[in-house]
Nucleic acid binder design. Structure first.
Length: 545
DNA sequence: AAAGCACTCAACCGCGTGCAC
DNA sequence: CGTGCACGCGGTTGAGTGCTT
């Protein structure tokens, strides 16, 4: 468009990092050298000067450009001009469909990591991609279209997954298919290479979404990590766009629809991330449920909810956030599901008592994980766990974590008659963070562990040995809920609490600020995040009474 | 034809990081 | 260890353009 090098606009002031004093509308004067630096569109003459300079001196040392060439541009501006417009092999023009597809994939994988995305798009700049993406978001938002085309997910699904779990792991219902998170954190590195998503490695969420998104949606981003419980070891993330939790596990849909649409009103959302502290660089491929690429799981394997997994050592833990559609309430999972219905939870829609605008035949990934683990634990009661040796703590491990946004006022609004609402209130009553790691809790854990059937699951155990003191300082009053996990060590047929959970997620009244403070103290990356030690397994607490 | 609006995108801004001193 | 600088990155701004009314 007409932003080339309009000389008529070339006199805007430029403020660079160097100390400058405004010398009028169009120039800034460098306080040290008295050099007037220009800002605004570049002229062809300036471009020529810069090109000539780079030819002679190479890239870098941008601040010396002005010194050597007399160009009235700060180094920052020079670098930007060169990188985005002047450097060779830049590809101009509209993105090709293939590039667009790649951008979608990369964004799903990386979030708003434009520079990293640009690496995969030769000739394209991060700025270009960023602009494209923001434009695309706005356009699709306006059109009420899903951010990620449904066909994209279908393509991303292996054949067997599509056939078995159509519409796929993302729960892309008709009209509820806008998902893949982008969320600013570079997180789940969901690999879409060759349209085969690989498990991701989670990194920290970049809480900030693109400005347009934040503004447009009126909510921060929301990220979701969902364990792929059926058929795939795939995870995905939510970011950049508000996730519609009306299409959530609570209502029998995947919490992936982050499209803004009228059916699923957006509410506050939050981003959380996960990573393995043992891998501070987050460079390792983390496989959900301990499934590694070279494990016995193949693309053709169905991740059976009835079969235990073994060999899990480092596990990428999903976090989940969702929101109840109508009330805008951040709730918990429908733990009240009867145990016999667990399978159906996985395979079929949730109870119709919860109106969903985006009903899906499947539950959220976390729900699936919960249900799966419950079932898994049940079935493996006398199998994998008992097979474990005393020193082996990784047998039959399956780990997940869920993160929920804490909004006390929203929590209050939970319909107590709804599964989520019920769980929210009752969870706390049964799982008070005041004594999150007490012996009683451990007993419950143990008892829960020994139950072969998961009945009336209430919450994931929240235990935080390291933070116990902190937690005890919290003045928690019901109805609050704590959601998190604890690591338990398996030793023979018994399971005992082993380590600490480094994070916990709290829901409920009076916890907000305290928890935020605590979270900031303890995690550095915010309430709701989960850090997992290299522990073998986490146990969901079921039937905490 | 003109005004208004939406869209696009180049460029700016602020911040974080790495490095040298 | 602190400071300053260079650089890179992501978010934001705002002018030009095109479309609609």
């Amino acid at each position: 468009m007409g932003h080339s090098t309009g000389d008529e606009r070339e006199n805007r002031a430029l403020s660079c990092d160097s100390p400058l004093s405004n010398d009028g509308d169009n120039f800034l004067r460098g306080s040290d050298r008295g050099v007037i630096l220009k800002k605004g569109p570049w002229t062809t003459a300036e471009d020529a000067i810069l090109i000539d300079y780079v030819k002679k001196h190479g890239e870098g040392n941008w601040n010396s450009v002005q010194k050597h060439t007399g160009l009235s541009r700060c180094g920052k501006s020079c670098r930007l001009r060169w990188a985005n417009h002047l450097r060779p092999n830049l590809k101009k023009g509209a993105f090709t469909p293939e590039e667009e597809r790649l951008i979608i994939e990369l964004h799903a994988k990386m979030g708003n990591k434009w520079a990293r995305m640009a690496v995969h798009l030769p000739g394209r700049t991060d700025n270009e991609i960023k602009n494209y993406w923001n434009t695309r978001i706005k356009r699709r938002q306006r059109a009420g279209l899903p951010l990620y085309p449904a066909e994209f997910f279908q393509q991303a699904l292996p054949e067997n997954q599509q056939s078995r779990n159509s519409p796929g792991i993302f729960g892309l219902d008709e009209g509820c298919h806008d998902s893949l998170p982008s969320h600013g954190y570079e997180t789940p590195d969901v690999m879409f290479d060759s349209l085969n998503m690989l498990p991701y490695r989670a990194e920290f969420p970049d809480i900030s979404a693109s400005g347009s998104l934040v503004t447009g949606f009126g909510s921060p981003q929301l990220y979701t990590f969902l364990p792929q419980t059926v058929g795939l070891h795939k995870l995905t993330q939510e970011h950049d766009e508000q996730m519609d939790f009306g299409c959530s596990a609570v209502n029998g849909s995947y919490p992936f629809d982050m499209a803004r649409n009228d059916r699923c009103e957006n509410k506050m959302s939050q981003s959380y991330g996960l990573y393995l502290p043992s891998d501070p660089n987050h460079t390792k491929q983390l496989w959900p449920f301990g499934v590694s690429p070279d494990s016995h799981f193949t693309s053709n394997d169905i991740f059976s909810a009835s079969e235990p997994l073994e060999g899990a050592e480092k596990l990428e833990l999903p976090s989940l956030q969702y929101q109840e559609t109508n009330s805008g309430v951040w709730g918990l999972l429908p733990f009240d599901a009867a145990p016999e219905s667990l399978d159906s939870f996985i395979q079929s829609p949730l109870s119709g008592t919860h109106p969903s605008h985006c009903s899906s035949p499947r539950s959220s990934g976390l729900l699936e994980a919960l249900l799966y683990e419950a079932k898994f634990r049940s079935k493996s009661e006398n199998q994998s766990f008992d097979k474990a040796t005393s020193s082996t703590v990784s047998q039959g491990a399956m780990t997940y974590c869920s993160s929920l946004k804490a909004h006390s006022t929203e929590i209050k609004g939970v319909d107590p008659t709804s599964p989520s609402g019920n769980s929210t209130g009752s969870n706390f009553n049964r799982c008070s963070p005041v004594d999150p790691i007490g012996t009683a809790m451990e007993e419950k854990i143990r008892a829960s562990r020994m139950k072969s059937e998961v009945v009336n699951q209430r919450c994931i155990v929240i235990l935080d040995e390291d933070r116990k003191e902190n937690l005890n300082h919290l003045d928690c009053s019901p109805p609050d809920a704590v959601l998190g996990s604890c690591w338990l060590e398996q030793s023979g047929s018994t399971v005992k609490q082993r380590g600490s959970i480094t994070e916990a997620i709290f829901l409920g009244d009076d916890l907000g600020s305290e928890l935020k403070n605590m979270s900031s103290r303890t995690s550095g990356w915010g309430l709701g995040s989960c850090t997992w030690n290299n522990m073998p397994s986490a146990y969901q607490m079921s039937d905490i009474q």
